[in-house]
Amino acid sequence: MKFDDLDLKMRVYETAHDTQVLPGMYMVARIDGRGFTRLTKETHPFEAPFDVRFRDYMIATTEHLMNCGFKVIYGYTQSDEISLLFDLNETAFSRKHRKYTSILAGEASAQFSVLLGSVAAFDCRICELPNAGLVEDYFRWRNEDAHRNALNAHCYWRLRQGGATKAEATKRIEKISVAEKNELLFTLGVNFNELPLWQKRGTGIYWAEVEKEGFDVKQQTTVIVKRKQLCRNMELPMREAYNEFISGILNAG
């Protein structure tokens, strides 16, 4: 059998389940760390419940993904997860799911592993959202999840640091309200409201136009030029204000 015939025959099996994101649909990629509880608590014991080094690795990985060949207009990271919002008109790889999920998982795994100095892996999935309102709600959801996780993590680790076992700490915060968790932390010497916002709301990364000093070779003079660069926001708004923030990103994009 000639190679061209064999290639045509076998290619069908490779692409039989290819799916594409339809034009006009917003794409959001969700990239999650695989086995990161063990990685960050046993293999590489980061400070609990939050570690600035780990935060910076996740931010750097997010920025890498926003610069690896796709038109990403917003990146968001909290804990061991990253969410990327693509330009509505992104057409790379014909918008095939398998290309986005494989490339982004691979790029994230490689970048984080280099930063960590050890093997780390991520998985990826694509959310298809039919309108801007759902895009806002998606990021609002992840923002609120960050807040919930931060409250639980601070309660759990304060109890553990006070001598409670894993089971005791878990049981102590099970089924108690947000108000009760805040009160528990207060009795343990922590005012949750005063903790850094990046712990409670995650970090947003977006493109912004900035002025920089350049040199005009022809005129032999210093000039001010405008460039787009990634900006980090570690004090994200919450609730409706965050929806408005995402709306601004969409309109700017």
Rank of each mutant, 00 (worst) to 15 (best):
L184C: 10
L185N: 00
R125T: 09
L151V: 07
L115Y: 05
R158P: 02
K96F: 11
F122P: 01
G106N: 00
L197D: 11
F86A: 01
S109A: 09
E107L: 03
L115N: 04
E107D: 03
Q199A: 02
H147F: 14
L85K: 00
L188M: 14
G75V: 00
D80N: 13
S79R: 05
S79K: 04
N182P: 02
V114Y: 08
E136L: 04
V114N: 09
R142D: 01
S102A: 15
S102F: 06
R172C: 07
F70N: 03
T77H: 05
H154E: 14
R172S: 11
N143G: 03
W198T: 00
L134W: 14
E90V: 05
N191H: 12
D137A: 13
G189V: 06
A153I: 01
W141N: 06
I82T: 05
G163C: 10
F122T: 03
E183D: 15
G162L: 12
D87Q: 10
R148C: 11
S79I: 01
R125L: 11
L116G: 04
N193H: 14
K171S: 14
R140H: 12
E81K: 08
T165P: 10
G162E: 12
I176H: 11
E183H: 15
S109V: 02
F192W: 10
E144A: 15
Q111G: 03
Y138H: 13
I82W: 00
H154T: 08
L188A: 11
T77I: 09
K181S: 06
Y76E: 02
R148P: 01
I103Q: 03
R158S: 15
T91K: 14
F186D: 13
F93W: 13
R172G: 02
N152E: 14
A150D: 05
N193F: 12
E107C: 06
H154R: 15
E174L: 11
I176G: 12
C124Q: 05
W157P: 02
R160E: 09
L88W: 03
E168S: 09
A167N: 12
K175Q: 13
Y74K: 02
G69N: 13
R140T: 06
K175G: 08
T187M: 06
Q161E: 15
A164N: 10
L195H: 05
Y100T: 03
K96M: 13
N191Q: 12
Y156H: 13
G189H: 05
N149K: 07
F192S: 07
R98I: 13
G163E: 08
C127V: 07
A132K: 09
D87Y: 00
Q161W: 12
N131E: 14
S177K: 10
L104V: 05
V119R: 11
G189C: 07
D87F: 02
F122N: 00
A92E: 07
A169N: 11
Q111H: 15
Y100G: 03
K175E: 12
F93L: 10
L188V: 11
A110F: 06
E180S: 14
K166C: 00
A105T: 04
S79L: 05
D145I: 10
L184R: 08
